[in-house]
């Protein structure tokens, strides 16, 4: 890329950039547009690029007249819980993979890779029966447990890649300086891996925030519904209030976008660490 390209190529390049940008942003723009369009204009101005009137009524009514806040709270609880527990568990496992050679390591890694590949829906029926048998249907805790297990393999590979980036010498030096391995971990390695922990939290939060099918299966009570489940019942329960639904959607986007901004820097590292995840 040392030479400046020919003008034709430059124009083509910027045209391509613009095309990608509009493809990526147009649906999000539309989501926002519907959310701020007054109800009575949704049908008449459906295909206009720009609404003739703005309103925040949809946001107001979705927050104050629906169960939105409850869904939002449930999702936040489940996603934060999943993210925290997963990160803790994955940090331990990733550390072990990064620092130890032990019998069965290859097998364990293989098993973790396989869990990333087999159809998760395959276990939806057994999980439903087990959780029903434990009387834990409609419990957010059961969702956290299930989501944590689903996300641990990926998060483990991610954490492993972060630990791999921290020289082993450091904790060996700490152990020579009188630390136990755990002290070395806590005093030396942990402070250095804070960004990695943050990124893992972000990835897992985003994944848990958007999980739909298992939540649909395991949660049927309105007061325990997470955001995706609740939003889908918007569609079926009432005569669909599109404006409200889109407003709710915009609000649901906020947390994942916030986390996205944070984890953006780590995307490349995360997705090349041998892990595979939507």
């Amino acid at each position: 890329m040392t030479h400046s390209p020919k003008p034709v190529l430059a124009v083509g390049k910027y045209a391509a950039l613009l095309a990608y940008l509009s493809f990526a942003l147009f649906p999000l723009y539309w989501l926002l547009k519907i959310a701020v369009t007054p109800d009575q204009l949704i049908y008449t101005e459906g295909t206009n690029l720009w609404p003739s009137e703005f309103t925040f009524d949809n946001f107001r009514s979705v927050v104050f007249q629906t169960d939105f806040l409850s869904y939002f709270g449930n999702s936040l609880y489940v996603s934060l819980g999943t993210a925290a527990v997963t990160t803790l568990v994955a940090a331990g496992a990733g550390y072990a993979f990064s620092r130890f050679n032990f019998a069965g390591k290859r097998l364990l890694i293989a098993v973790m890779l396989i869990t990333q590949m087999f159809p998760l829906l395959m276990i939806i029926a057994p999980i439903y029966k087990i959780i029903a048998g434990l009387g834990m249907l409609n419990s957010l805790t059961s969702l956290i447990v299930v989501y944590t297990a689903f996300n641990v393999p990926f998060a483990t590979f991610l954490m492993q890649s972060f630990f791999d980036g921290i020289p082993k010498d450091l904790e060996e030096a700490a152990m020579m300086d009188g630390c136990s391995r755990f002290q070395a971990l806590y005093k030396v390695i942990f402070p250095l891996t804070l960004p990695g922990l943050g990124a893992t939290l972000g990835f897992v939060f985003t994944a848990a925030w958007s999980e739909l099918l298992f939540a649909l299966m395991l949660i049927s009570k309105n007061e325990a519904m997470t955001f995706p489940v609740g939003l889908l019942t918007f569609v079926s329960k009432f005569s669909v209030d599109w404006g409200q639904m889109m407003a709710a959607g915009v609000l649901a986007l906020v947390p994942s976008c916030l986390f996205f901004i944070f984890i953006q820097r780590y995307l490349v590292q995360g997705l090349t660490s041998g892990a595979v995840k939507g």
Binding site: L21, P27, L28, W30, L31, S210, L253, C257, F260, L267
Partner: peptide, 21 residues
């Protein structure tokens, strides 16, 4: 950051938005 944004959009939202479109 902007072109990667769709990756962060919860699936059910993408589905609803595209159904709308």
């Amino acid at each position: 950051a902007l072109v990667f944004l769709p990756w962060a959009v919860p699936t059910f939202l993408s589905a609803l938005t595209w159904a709308w479109l």
